[in-house]
Design a binder for these strands. Sequence first.
DNA 1: TGAAGCTGTAACAGCCGTGTCGCAAAGCGG
DNA 2: CCGCTTTGCGACACGGCTGTTACAGCTTCA
Lengths: 226, 226
Amino acid sequence: MLLVEDDRVLADLLVWHFEREQFVIRQTGDGDEALLLAEEFAPDIVLLDWMIDGVSGIEVCRRLRRSPATANVPIIMLTARGEESDRVRGLETGADDYLTKPFSPRELIARVGAVLRRVRPALAGEALRYADVEMDVVAHKVRRGGKAVPLGPTEFRLLRHLLEHPGRVFSRERLLDAVWAHDAEIELRTVDVHVRRLRKALNEGGRGDLIRTVRSAGYALDANAD
Amino acid sequence: MLLVEDDRVLADLLVWHFEREQFVIRQTGDGDEALLLAEEFAPDIVLLDWMIDGVSGIEVCRRLRRSPATANVPIIMLTARGEESDRVRGLETGADDYLTKPFSPRELIARVGAVLRRVRPALAGEALRYADVEMDVVAHKVRRGGKAVPLGPTEFRLLRHLLEHPGRVFSRERLLDAVWAHDAEIELRTVDVHVRRLRKALNEGGRGDLIRTVRSAGYALDANAD
DNA sequence: TGAAGCTGTAACAGCCGTGTCGCAAAGCGG
DNA sequence: CCGCTTTGCGACACGGCTGTTACAGCTTCA
């Protein structure tokens, strides 16, 4: 998420609120810098004040829409300009929503939720997270620390199941039931092999193990696995 | 478009405005009837008053979201309930936008435009874009990096569908449903062949592949496909 | 009516994912 | 320290999935 707002007090307030909602947020009060940050960090959504230093908010909006790299980023305009003509102009320039100051953080969060639900369903509830692992179920993608992790279908389903119940220990039997076809007659030890493959893929970047082995019980997702 | 509003005067005013904007609009003031109409006419967007006869607006919203046939229809709530808690509740129930009476028809039209641009860009007269690909739906033209890409009708519809949901993985069944006639009984593998033809056409200029194959799942549009 | 283009299907080759095995390594209890 | 149990590891063969090509039937347009 990228917040473009030059009012320090409001900016800090919003950053605090959104970080509490698990957003990764960057902030600037300058239009030119906003464009650079948007290119570089490919935010999931942009909150944009109209009256800022450098390039104006409406112009930032226009340029974001024009650049292929950012053309699809959702934008919520966030401004004191409450005239109907301003609102219409903002929306017609390509903003997805337009909120007039003063507004409550709660409403803004709700609107961000509504827009994200529409644009990237994965980000508004269908994304599974644990520690620095992120799974986009719809796009069928997994990232750890922002870096893509290539997984086979079975490894993907296995990780998905673990992410849906983080911390919980599953016996091999339970995992076979949950991850494999329910009528599959498969050797129990096969689970070990897939856990191993999943571990290998996840730890590729030299990071710590996320899967804890519980002797004579099974496996669990656990940030302090080692 | 479906308008659910029991205030006759406001309803007539809005119908007049939207018909002038080339919308095909149906109107009712009753919640139960609204649900039936939504099923039957599959509107592109729903404008929904909170306080109506029969099932309440918020409940209509919830049920539209729950039914598979209407789960993806964009909804704008349109009501006199201006309390922040009402707005948040509306948005969290699945509404895409929330407008408090009184509002100007012009702003509503702008917001309808913003939502449609997001959900069905083709309907809002917008070009579809992803990475360096640009599709003009009306003119039936596709360009990549500014250079025209010749596509057959099926390839065009296939790409269009992918562009409308970038990043998302579609199974072959889903693609057959979305891209081919809904009653077509076609071999699943046929999708592969069309994907290949589309890939070939798009990558003619020696650019990287934009379509990601997800083994045992389907295909997705993805800038980092390889 | 003829040619060109588009579409759906079948066939085949190559590759990736999967399940299993044997052995090494690590816990665990005495 | 020893022996037993459980888990990790590498290798391998099989099977299924996907990419690719060729071809025949069909539509479209001149």
